[in-house]
Simulated scan of single mutants.
Amino acid sequence: MPIKIADDLPARRTLEAEGVVVMGQADAVRQDIRPLRIALLNLMPNKISTETQLARLLGATPLQVELTLVRISDHVSRNTSADHMASFYRPWSDVRDERFDGFIITGAPVEHLPFEAVSYWDELRSIFDWTQTHVHRSLSICWAAQAALKHFHGVEKRSLDRKAFGVFRHRSHVPSSPYLRGFSDDFCVPVSRWSEVRRDDLPADRGLKLLADSEESGLCLIDDPARGFLHMFNHLEYDTLTLAAEFARDGAGQMPAHYFPGDDPSQAPINSWRGHAHLLFGNWINEIYQTAPFVLEESDGSGGWRSAA
């Protein structure tokens, strides 16, 4: 089934060229079904690239998805044009009265800052609280996963002396989890971050479930069922060349591990994670579909929903 996005969103042309089915409003209405309402709070600098990556994965699932792009209300993006932001993004203050089946929060390049020093930290904390009453299932990525654990559980992130950067092998610990359905015992994940949360930092009495991690790069996936959150500390959504672009952006400094064949940047990297990226997002969407009501009502604060009055 297709993903419903704005006709002139740049991601649309890319996805159509790749064969992803993208639909407009008229076609969506003709299907006479309720699409899953998924919102994306995009905190990444290159918003167009991130939109495309996530829309590609959401659009490959067998359900109709309506994607809403959301931004921090008072934060001005320095890396994406004002026209693009005005045309396609809604401030959270405008959507806070709406309800969504799913909500995705991306990472942000602010890992060197204490959470409290991030200019939009207070609003992000309000958004985390809002998900508990207005969102059925949420997915946090990279820094946002660390921020969510800080907000909900008081877990502090740790700065790294050397960037966790490359494609690392990970291990599935809970194959029975609905989010890991179809996963190999061992799978590859792109990693790009300057901070981490360690396994020993996780509180033992808060219901957090470690789903996957890596001996080299640490935690990857944590399920927080009481909060309706899946936390991913890494980047299964990345394109094949995303790490190469980061490597070039940083002046060809630290080589991404296990990425370029023979550690030779002149060689094209091979995408070894694409299948598991589709599995994870497909499983997340399926879990939403299986558990969300037809009429979105207020969440009960524990990943479930109150029935319509």
Rank of each mutant, 00 (worst) to 15 (best):
R13K: 13
D97N: 13
G303F: 05
I288L: 09
V22G: 02
G253A: 12
L160K: 03
Q267P: 11
V70P: 02
F294K: 15
V191A: 14
H231N: 04
A39S: 10
S140D: 01
P10W: 09
I285A: 09
D185E: 14
A257V: 13
R306I: 11
L63Y: 15
R199S: 09
R56W: 06
V29S: 12
A268D: 12
P203M: 08
F229M: 12
Y179F: 15
V95E: 06
V20F: 06
T242C: 08
R158M: 12
D101C: 10
D201F: 01
D201M: 07
P10H: 08
A108Y: 07
N234C: 11
A226E: 15
V76D: 09
I3M: 05
A144H: 03
L41S: 00
I222F: 03
A277Q: 07
K4C: 10
E156H: 05
V155C: 01
T242Y: 09
T291S: 13
L219G: 06
S272K: 15
H75M: 07
L63P: 03
G102P: 02
E111Y: 07
A26T: 14
G262L: 06
H231W: 10
E298V: 14
A6Q: 11
G166P: 08
A164M: 11
T133H: 06
A309P: 15
Y259E: 05
I48H: 01
F168A: 09
L243M: 09
M23F: 13
A26K: 15
G304M: 01
D205Y: 10
L41W: 00
T14F: 07
F103L: 05
D205H: 03
A147Q: 04
T106I: 07
